[in-house]
């Protein structure tokens, strides 16, 4: 099993790397302001990533398909969201559907 020093160092490196990703955009922004078009493209890129993250984490568990309850729950939530249900309803319905299906043994 991994030792204390290794956890401390690995955590610090992962933390520093993650922070570097996050701070790169804001730092570059102080030197030059990208055109509105580029800024809009970055916002779309972030939206595409978040959507892909939501879809893949809804359907996949690691590299294989998730059990049926999870995608079913997310699908209920997504339909409600598309139909402009309040956010709380969306989230509670998604969790409730998945939990309910599992309770039923699906």
């Amino acid at each position: 099993m991994i030792g204390t020093t290794e956890i401390l160092v690995a955590g610090a490196v992962l933390g520093a790397g993650t922070y570097a990703y996050r701070v790169a955009g804001p730092l570059l922004h102080t030197w030059f302001t990208p055109s509105l078009r580029v800024q809009a493209l970055m916002t779309i890129a972030a939206t595409v990533l978040l959507f892909a993250l939501g879809v893949t984490s809804a359907l996949m568990d690691g590299t294989h398909l998730a059990d049926a309850a999870r995608p079913a729950g997310v699908a209920v939530g997504a339909v409600l969201a598309w139909r402009r249900a309040p956010f709380v309803v969306v989230v509670v319905a998604a969790a409730g559907t998945a939990a309910g299906l599992r309770l039923l043994g699906l």
Binding site: G54, V55, G77, A81, V90, V91, R102
Partner: peptide, 26 residues
């Protein structure tokens, strides 16, 4: 997972992103 939280968090992301997806360009 028993509480369905694994379904709740993807639903959070989708609920927040879906309004932007009404724009065809996105």
């Amino acid at each position: 997972d028993a509480f369905g939280l694994d379904a709740a968090l993807p639903a959070v992301l989708l609920a927040l992103v879906l309004p932007a997806l009404r724009d065809r360009g996105i």
